[in-house]
Design a protein around this nucleic acid. Structure first.
Lengths: 113, 113
DNA sequence: GTAATATACCTCACCTGTCAAGGTATATTA
DNA sequence: TAATATACCTTGACAGGTGAGGTATATTAC
């Protein structure tokens, strides 16, 4: 949606895992929370979101179950596993390294002549 | 090479443009400088580098010319254009927005109970 | 002499994550 | 009964990254 969409690439899994640290949730809710947290500057695309869920489940980082809503659309809830927490820590550490590297590489050296 | 390679995706062009701000340079040199600036934590892959050069040249952000070295391997030098400077400014601004968004999305809220 | 290493360029085919476009179904409001 | 919001899902195409391969020059080591 926004200009920054391209740059979020590769961070989808970390964003999802970070949300699930606070408790089980489902796709629609995770996306809403993402929008709210960024002041509507960013939203995950649905296709991106669901393919990321598949990947994370295949990796054993999350597991899913159907909610028992009595009314409204069904919801598939996701829960983070121990492996998922480890993966989150790893991705967060990598992000911090990458952020520093990029900042180093693109910063204009200021002449304090 | 390093774990962060995936996360640099999408930033290759900005990294190249940032190097060229300091003056004309050539592929091998740009990659060496990148490695040095990051303390050997990161190096662009050659294929990545050269495809990025093609894109940037097609976009009119850079132009190239052969050096006139009397000995050693030939070098293709790249020079940043006015459009390239504008593009660099744009990419840098986008990176700053993306960095903030990601930090917002993955930061664990600390309980200061 | 020649093998190895460093410099320096380039291309191709493949992989992976993203996403536009399409689909299904339920509940509420107009 | 039409529109909107909630909620899920799949498919095919696309773009950037990259492993693997290639070319050529100059220097150093054996």
């Amino acid at each position: 949606m926004s200009i920054t969409a391209d740059l979020i690439r590769g961070h989808t899994e970390m964003i999802i895992l970070a949300q699930l640290l606070h408790g089980d949730s489902y796709g629609y809710q995770i996306n809403k929370a993402t929008q709210e947290k960024t002041g509507n500057q960013f939203a995950l695309k649905e296709a991106t979101l669901y393919t990321a869920f598949r990947r994370l489940e295949d990796m054993g980082c999350i597991y899913s179950y159907w909610g028992d809503e009595q009314s409204g659309a069904r919801r598939r809830y996701y829960s983070i596993t121990e492996r998922g927490r480890k993966q989150y820590e790893k991705l967060l550490a990598e992000w911090r390294v990458a952020r520093e590297l990029i900042d180093k590489l693109v910063a204009e050296e200021v002449d304090n002549g």
